[in-house]
Simulated assay, not measured.
Amino acid sequence: MPIKDPCAPAAVQPLRIQTLIGLLICAAGLLALCVQIWNMLQHQPPVRSALLGGSIAALATALGTLPVLLAQRPSERVQDTLFGFGAGVMLAASAFSLVIPGLDAARSAGLLGGSGWAAGGIVGMAILTGGAALLAMDHLLPHEHFIKGREGSDAGQLRRTWLFVFAIILHNLPEGLAIGVGYAGNEGLRANALAIGIAIQDVPEGFVVATALLAAGYSHRFAIALGVASGLVEPLGAVAGAAIIGHSALLLPWGLGFAAGAMLFVISHEIIPESHRKGHEAFATAGLLTGFVLMMVLDTAL
């Protein structure tokens, strides 16, 4: 009896049908998700505002990559100054736009009696939870996948580059979450100040991502494309943050604290060490102070 070839068209046909069915299911799920997001945008103004704020932050990241078309690799001193500037903006945003409003929200909601100790405990636990979540995500990232085939110092440079790029992408998600939580829990002006502050620091951030990839040997086109893509998670995070917090005001202190913890983790774990690694601590610190003051002024003046 002849053995039937498993690679024959008759055997391949069921596989193609299964693939088609799978694609149709995914398309239906994506369509349902789009419909759900559309309904939220129609009936929940904070979600609509969060999407706009997150999109502006993503656009700022994209704009930051454009100078790479005209410039070569910036000096290490300039890179470290930009790193410090971004850290300062994020640090001020964590304090003035997330932690302090979170404490006020915990008192207003009367959680655990509404005392100062209770509010501090709730927001403190949320901060620790946000930091722990980012630590877990950092450990799960496949850093080594991108350095196969490289050896010695070249591999080390490439690993640091991709580690930093992943850190930027990773922290853009809680930045978007922070924007969404800000619109769900703050008055418009305070939320706008937070979104503007994050967008401002996203401009040098996009530039740094693109130049880091350029310095690692990637093409201008790839560096710009990935720099732009790194900011696209912010609108998604903003919509998610506003939608989740919009369902229950009791979640607001936890959401604000979680976003603050995630941002503080990235500042301490990635940005500051990277800005001090090459011996330009003074310039990095000057950038941090400048960014902190800028964000503080935006938050208090607007």
Rank of each mutant, 00 (worst) to 15 (best):
5 D>R: 01
6 P>T: 08
11 A>L: 02
22 G>H: 11
25 I>M: 07
28 A>C: 06
30 L>D: 02
31 L>M: 10
32 A>Y: 03
33 L>M: 09
34 C>V: 06
35 V>H: 03
37 I>V: 14
41 L>H: 13
46 P>G: 11
48 R>V: 00
57 A>K: 01
58 A>Q: 02
59 L>T: 12
68 V>T: 15
70 L>D: 00
76 E>W: 09
76 E>A: 14
79 Q>M: 14
83 F>Y: 14
83 F>G: 15
89 V>S: 08
92 A>T: 03
95 A>R: 01
101 P>N: 08
104 D>P: 00
107 R>Q: 13
107 R>Y: 03
114 G>P: 13
120 G>A: 12
121 G>T: 12
122 I>N: 08
124 G>I: 11
125 M>F: 11
139 H>S: 14
142 P>H: 01
147 I>Q: 00
152 G>A: 06
169 I>H: 00
171 H>D: 03
176 G>K: 10
177 L>M: 05
180 G>Y: 08
181 V>C: 02
182 G>K: 04
194 L>F: 15
195 A>V: 07
197 G>I: 03
198 I>M: 04
199 A>M: 06
214 L>K: 12
215 A>D: 13
216 A>S: 10
217 G>H: 09
221 R>H: 01
226 L>W: 01
228 V>A: 06
234 E>I: 00
236 L>N: 01
239 V>K: 06
240 A>C: 11
240 A>K: 02
242 A>L: 05
257 G>C: 14
259 A>W: 05
259 A>F: 09
259 A>H: 00
261 G>A: 13
264 L>K: 04
264 L>H: 04
265 F>P: 02
267 I>A: 10
272 I>M: 15
276 H>S: 06
280 H>P: 01
283 F>S: 15
287 G>W: 05
288 L>V: 02
289 L>Q: 07
290 T>V: 09
296 M>V: 04
298 L>Q: 01
299 D>I: 00
300 T>A: 14
